[in-house]
Design a protein around this nucleic acid. Structure first.
Length: 497
RNA sequence: GGCCCCAUAGUCUAGCGGUUAGGACGUUGCCCUCUCACGGCAGUAGCAUGGGUUCGAAUCCCGUUGGGGCUGCCA
């Protein structure tokens, strides 16, 4: 814990791929943990792998976190800007005899490894350069810097894992004299991560399970450099439906893809917080709930399989809780440039409001509005062939047209101040009620029922078997457009007969 | 191979020595209904395995099996 007794966490991705599900969960856990204690959350870009790091990925990570409202308290720290810091610590370790230069070539080390493996031993560095005499060191020759791991019979290095609530330790003999500075002078992950976490005064490190065996190495480094050792919590991996680990190297979907597919950030966060963490039987969490209740003690220890069905369910729940005006904007945010934007007017609102409980993604919302977005519709034979129409169909449609014509145009009045949402919604409700009332009168006067006439109206007005409720459809499509569609529909079935 | 971690329905999980093993997704049936949904009701399916400890074990201990991670001059 630092001086202020403040909890400080971080998310430290490497920009070698798009931000994916597993990374987001780690980021989210760190974020809500810090916020739970009123602490700070930081972002550090670990771009020391010069070959694989790319700006494109870096931007994707930043954008995705922003979209998810997982916002760092300070600007991101870039390891590539801190090389001189790492160098000074490497020099110090060298001077203090806690690290040493190693001149072994990669080929030589490879040979060692193969030999150890064939002898059934752990393929570790042989320690050949561990105790070179000064005259044997020629710094002009290619070399790396290795950490001199503490050796000794029965010596162990361990830590208490907060996610498991128990100690995990390793025999020091299992720990290699690992490389801390590469041949090109760039620090390796284990070295840079320790220096940065210490200098950034990170108090709690919540990260993936895959780092468990790095932890003793890092603890040795903390001790060697005289830093305080932070707390650790290792979160289990997320598995694909095949039971294999989900990672960016194994085709995990990116956050940006989920956004494109019409998922809400609230839903993604909600799904991920529940994947590996629980708070009793609760399922629905908003960010403030997560911050309020999140606790390392309730993290599950076993790996979790990613399940899209449940994510879809959560997405539908979060969509339902948003007002239609917002949904229209969200759908437009992710629309393909080839698509017309949805107009944020009362007609669209009428449909979106009734579609809210019928969709699982924003993409679906848009698809279900196709009949409305397009000025005219095409009647598809593969749909209409399922139905039979006769003389009575035409008689009914003609009457229905007459009914629409007779409707007071005021019902379709759309001039409303959308900034006054409740008023707009009220007006909408009245219009739909009016249509419903008038329509029911029309039906009963003719001894018809909604049940028997709904399908033909739906087909005529939308061209589909499935649509939003008809009163809303009539209101949204509007009087004139409805009439035009009925005419067109009549022509279509007339020819077919 | 070595080291480390993990194990409740198809999936996510609650449970922390005494429960008819709870909830959620999915799935099935029914109700509601202008279609599709939503909603409501009901059903479906689970403690990997073998030993201990205990009056009593999903819960504690050990072995087995299974899964995962690490074993890089990746992170």
């Amino acid at each position: 814990m630092n001086n202020n007794n403040e909890v400080r966490t971080r998310f430290a991705p490497s920009p070698t791929g798009y931000l994916h599900i597993g990374g987001v969960r780690t980021a989210l856990f760190n974020y809500v943990y810090a916020k739970h204690f009123g602490g700070k959350f930081f972002l550090r870009i670990e771009d020391t792998d010069l070959d694989r790091s790319r700006k494109e990925f870096e931007f994707d990570i930043l954008d995705s976190l922003k979209w998810l409202s997982i916002t760092p308290d300070e600007d991101a720290v870039y390891q590539s800007n801190r090389l001189e810091i790492y160098k000074s610590y490497a020099d110090r370790l060298l001077k203090e005899g806690k690290a040493y230069l190693c001149f072994c070539s990669k080929e030589l080390i490879e040979e060692d490894r193969n030999r150890f493996a064939s002898e059934g031993k752990k393929p570790m560095y042989s320690g050949r350069c561990r105790n070179l005499r000064p005259e044997e060191k020629d710094c002009s020759m290619p070399h790396v810097i290795r950490f001199k791991a503490e050796r000794g019979e029965g010596l162990r290095t361990g830590f208490k894992d907060l996610a498991r609530n128990r100690f995990i330790n390793f025999n020091n003999n299992e720990i290699d004299d690992f490389v801390i500075v590469r041949g090109d002078g760039i620090p390796t992950y284990n070295f840079a991560v320790v220096i940065d976490d210490a200098l950034m005064e990170i108090t709690h490190i919540i990260r993936g399970d895959d780092h468990v065996s790095n932890t003793p190495k890092q603890i040795m480094l903390y001790n060697a450099m005289g830093f305080n050792v932070p707390e650790f919590a290792h979160v289990s991996m997320i598995l694909g439906s095949d039971g294999k680990r989900l990672s960016k190297r194994h085709g995990a979907a990116s956050v940006s893809q989920y956004k494109k597919d019409g998922f809400l950030p609230e839903a993604l966060n909600n799904y991920l917080i529940r994947l590996g963490w629980s708070h009793g039987n609760d399922e629905i969490f908003y960010m403030n709930d997560m911050i309020k209740y999140f606790d390392l003690k309730n993290i599950s220890k076993s790996a979790a399989v990613f399940n899209t069905e449940k994510l879809l369910w959560l997405n539908s729940r979060h969509i339902r809780s948003k007002d239609p005006f917002v949904l229209i904007d969200l759908a437009n945010d992710i629309r393909d440039i080839s698509q017309k934007p949805l107009v944020n007017d009362i007609r669209t609102v009428a449909l979106v409001e009734s579609l809210k409980s019928r969709i699982k993604t924003l993409v679906e919302l848009r698809q279900k509005l196709d009949f409305f977005i397009n000025e005219s519709i095409e009647y598809k034979s593969e749909i209409l062939n399922e139905f039979t129409f006769d003389e009575n169909s035409l008689i009914f449609l003609k009457a229905f047209k007459g009914f629409l014509n007779g409707l007071n145009s005021k019902i379709f009045e759309c001039d409303v101040d959308l900034s006054k949402k409740n008023e707009a919604l009220e007006m909408l409700k009245n219009s739909v009620e009016s249509i419903k009332g008038e329509f029911n009168d029309f039906l009963s006067k003719n001894s018809w029922t909604m049940k028997e006439k709904a399908t033909i109206i739906r087909l005529a007005l939308t061209g589909e078997k499935i649509s939003p409720p008809l009163y809303e459809v009539i209101f949204a499509v509007g009087k004139e457009r409805c009439i035009r569609r009925i005419d067109k529909f009549c022509d279509y079935i007339d020819i077919k007969r």
